[in-house]
């Protein structure tokens, strides 16, 4: 009886006794680690995350107090990236802004994935009336005019939920439609496989079939979608904050910092105020996309690097 080994396990020491085979996940992780661009991007994001998270320990400058004496100073040893038009240290605000932007990105992605996967998988698996009902509801959400509803919901939720969480809730409520549709379509095709029939016949209940059999097999698409979503949400936060409908103005975020460039004088003569947040934002989005690309490649069994 011949057992077909995969290439990786043969190169490893084949002398060890019954060793566990690599799960498809472990193989994907291995492939991902070999992708240089994705690994650099990942390290950048991790460093950025750590810096933002530890912001209070790294800089001691006050982020909110207006300091008339230090207005619009160019970069120097004391203020690495200079100060903005209100005399606040740009570097400090950049770190604190990263906190907000990353928080918005991560929380929105998590909430959206949860709602979208739940609704999509239930609709896809059960089909019929359940499917029609959930999908019409999804269409309804998808048809909301985004900007108008962000502004309206922001006004309604203001005071009920505090600070950035208003924006997180709003973005999540409006954002899960695409994920739900994606997951549903994937489940629809996956559930036609005979192993789903098999799992019914061996007595699995619907919840178990969805969680143990269907979701692991559609997760690859969901993960790739999640990275795109993460980037989109950070951009959405920045865009809305730039327009003044996002995070409250006193809270530093990359979008709020960019909003300063609305003044022509800042845009022309004080690049240190808006270039750092813009640069960090671009790098973050880029690296998220590289990571997404890397994951996609790692999860694709047909690609070899």
């Amino acid at each position: 009886m011949e057992v077909v080994h995969n290439k990786n396990s043969q190169t490893e020491n084949s002398t060890t006794k019954p060793q566990k085979s690599m799960s498809p996940w472990a193989m994907a992780r291995r492939k991902f680690m070999k992708n240089k661009l994705a690994m650099i991007s990942l390290s950048y994001l991790i460093v950025l995350g750590i810096l933002s998270f530890l912001a209070p320990y790294i800089t001691t400058a006050d982020i909110s107090r207006v300091n008339i004496g230090d207005m619009s100073l160019a970069p120097s040893a004391e203020h690495w990236f200079g100060t903005d038009t209100s005399g606040r240290d740009v570097f400090t605000r950049l770190l604190y802004g990263g906190r907000v932007s990353l928080l918005v990105g991560i929380s929105c992605t998590a909430i959206i994935l949860f709602i979208g996967t739940l609704i999509g998988s239930v609709a896809g698996y059960f089909g019929g009336a359940v499917d029609s009902m959930l999908m019409r509801f999804t269409d309804f959400i998808l048809n909301f005019p985004f900007l108008v509803f962000v502004i309206v919901l922001n006004a309604i939720l203001f005071g009920i939920v505090s600070g950035v969480w208003v924006l997180i809730v709003v973005l999540s409520i409006l954002g899960w439609g695409g994920v739900a549709r994606l997951v549903r379509s994937k489940i629809l095709s996956e559930k036609e496989n005979e192993y789903i029939l098999a799992s019914i016949s061996i007595g699995c209940k619907p919840g178990k079939i969805i969680l143990k059999h269907l979701l692991p097999n559609v997760l690859t698409t969901v993960i790739v979608q999640a990275t795109i979503l993460f980037a989109t949400m950070i951009v959405a936060e920045s865009g809305l904050s730039y327009l003044g409908f996002g995070v409250p103005q006193e809270v530093p975020s990359w979008g709020n910092m960019l909003a300063a460039s609305q003044q022509p004088e800042v845009l022309q003569n004080m690049p240190w105020i808006w270039v750092p947040p813009a640069l960090v934002l671009i790098l973050t989005i880029l690296s998220i996309n590289f990571i997404g690309e890397g994951i996609k490649e790692a999860l694709n069994p047909k690609s070899y690097r």
């Binding site: 498809p24 029939l197 098999a198 799992s199 016949s201 061996i202 692991p216």
Partner: peptide
Amino acid sequence: RQDIQMVFQDPYASLNPMQ
């Protein structure tokens, strides 16, 4: 269903690749 079981046609599609 405990008493009736099935062997499926397609040996590739009838086993969950993630298990």
